[in-house]
Design a protein around this nucleic acid. Structure first.
Lengths: 228, 228
DNA sequence: GTCTATAACTAGATAGAC
DNA sequence: GTCTATCTAGTTATAGAC
């Protein structure tokens, strides 16, 4: 089985970049960004060490590319989903649950979609908010500034009794709940949790997870104001 | 100003261990566990490189010691707080808010207490749930197994309409909200959030933060069941 | 575009004087 | 207990043949 005999005639070399991105995403998600030598990535991808520097300039360039590849379409999908629920609501504010669904569902579905080669995007996404460093800060700014602005405005309108900062903090809590889930849902049940939850309840299908998260966050967001 | 002239007569050397722990905690919290060379720690502590291996055996030993120093008293305080609210409730279940307060307040107060030299424990605590690796897994098991069991049981009793796994997931969401807050509250407001929240609202006193978190989590936990 | 070989550097750990 | 000097291994990045 030759490797370039599938569908591309002469130059199938673009596949190298994708193979590197896939391998890097998987390893970054499992082990964090700083515990993955480039050699492990190229070995996993079946390409040469020098290929990373050739295609991405540096390990930093690769990291940026890995996040960009997922975050750009993901956040477009979230904003498109918000467009839809806002259009459906006409002049009124959409339901809080619908807004939260637009925020949460695309992430969970992407994270759990093995077709995309992104089973492990769960860990990557969670890592985005937990690993330090200026590098990720810039990536976050590029991808999240507009998104956060739009969803903050939508939620503020949906719960007009809350102040701007209260909506901000509750969005922040929601995001923490979401990404803490992502970080752990790909891993096996830790043994020290086995007294509290069954293994069968630890890994859910994506729609159940979305339902749980939306119900929790909606109730939390609707809680009475604590700054009267 | 000689360094051993404060209160100890002849052998003041125990201070070295503490200085290393303080420096390591600070740097680990700021930059994560894997981005901190031992040389940076010893420089920050004003001691020699070899001191870490002498006192802790290895960098791994130091990491374990750093977490143990905070997690042991912290989780004892949380369980003691739970003891108190359970005793006050007598035969009845305590309020959900009181249970959540016992879970959340000791963390936030420790994280924000500069007296302990632990301003940066915020980041350390959040990192505990986000950095991968078997090392932290063992630390977590040691410190969290009993705690999670007790609080899970208390919450299950406080909201008897929910199933065990539903309580587990909502505890998980609550923990995500808590630790995502810890991870960010020590940092300056990222510029890409400045359109959404004022700097003055981004850093709260600990009691305001506890109040916000408890209100959010209590409402989320009380949401109607999603698995009927 | 891909590879081998290696440069240039940094990491954690240790030996042995003091 | 503390220090200097050093060892060994592992890292990113690059030079240059193919």
């Amino acid at each position: 089985m030759t490797s370039q005999s599938e569908s591309c005639g002469e130059r199938c070399h673009a596949a190298t970049k994708e193979k590197i991105l896939d391998a890097a995403e998987k390893l970054f998600a499992m082990r964090g960004l700083n515990n993955v030598p480039m050699r492990d990535i190229t070995q996993e991808a079946g390409v040469n060490v020098a290929a990373i520097n050739y295609h991405f300039g540096s390990k930093d360039g690769l990291i940026t590319a890995v996040f960009d590849r997922r975050l750009a379409p993901l956040n477009q999908a979230r904003m498109a989903a918000l467009d839809i629920v806002e259009a459906a609501a006409g002049k009124n504010s959409p339901n809080l649950e619908d807004i939260l669904g637009a925020f949460i569902r695309p992430v969970v579905e992407l994270a759990m979609n093995p077709k995309l080669g992104a089973i492990t995007f769960t860990g990557l996404m969670g890592r985005c908010f937990s690993e330090p460093g200026e590098r990720l800060n810039q990536i976050m700014q590029k991808h999240f500034e507009k998104l956060v602005g739009r969803f903050h405005a939508a939620m503020l309108r949906a719960i007009p009794t809350l102040s701007r900062e209260e909506v901000f903090w509750r969005m922040h809590f929601t995001n923490g709940a979401l990404h803490n889930s992502l970080l752990t849902m790909e891993k096996p049940l830790p043994e020290w949790l086995s007294n509290v939850v069954d293994a069968k309840d630890y890994h859910l299908d994506s729609e159940s997870q979305v339902r749980r998260l939306v119900a929790f966050a909606a109730a939390g967001l609707r809680a009475p104001s604590t700054t009267p």
